[in-house]
Design a protein around this nucleic acid. Structure first.
Lengths: 94, 94
DNA sequence: ATAAATAAGTTTATAATATAAACCAAATTA
DNA sequence: TAATTTGGTTTATATTATAAACTTATTTAT
């Protein structure tokens, strides 16, 4: 009946990050930080978890002389997100 | 943009419990346990949290000589569940 | 009658999580 | 050149989720 919810996605901040990235080609650290209103530390940790899971790719480069971290959702991430939403529906359907 | 998700409901087991109770007038401990496939210990803890939050009421009685715990969702619980689902939609809408 | 198994939970210990605080290095501004 | 800002990372702490161990009483088997 209740399918297990992917613990990597069943997290307020990680889910918000994925939600932001789903709509976009890519997004940099600060944009995601603003959209999700997360602290930098928390965001850093959660991006890392998503990256390790292969749900997003993270590229560290520079914008002029300043560091710039760009994130992008992967096909595996999109799939995982869709599975999560599908499972979740079981829990929230009326 | 992203509304805060009620931490009491953003929990796999507690959400499943609420989901089960929403459809029913009431349900006893073991029925909920079977439906959610939770361990008794975990369920006991989570029911307690939901009860403390006022989202469910828990009545301890007897069925014959054996103890029987009956749970029921409260109006506050229904409201909280609806708010949670509403907030969640922001995160999962495509 | 007594021992073993079952029922219905609760309490406690542990592992995993989420989160913010503290920190760091480089660049910019005063 | 000192202070501030930018763009993060690392670390410490508090909270959670979860299962294991335990309790109390009942039922079943010997």
């Amino acid at each position: 009946m209740f399918k297990k919810l992917d613990p990597l996605l069943h997290s307020e901040l990680r889910l918000a990050v994925m939600s932001v990235l789903l709509g976009l080609k890519d997004a940099d650290f600060n944009y995601i930080k603003e959209q999700t209103r997360a602290t930098a530390g928390n965001l850093s940790v959660q991006l890392d978890k998503l990256a390790r899971a292969g749900y997003i790719s993270v590229e560290k480069g520079f914008a002029g002389k300043r560091p710039k971290t760009t994130c992008r959702i992967t096909p595996a991430g999109i799939q995982a997100f869709e599975n999560y939403v599908e499972s979740l529906k079981e829990y929230i359907k009326r």
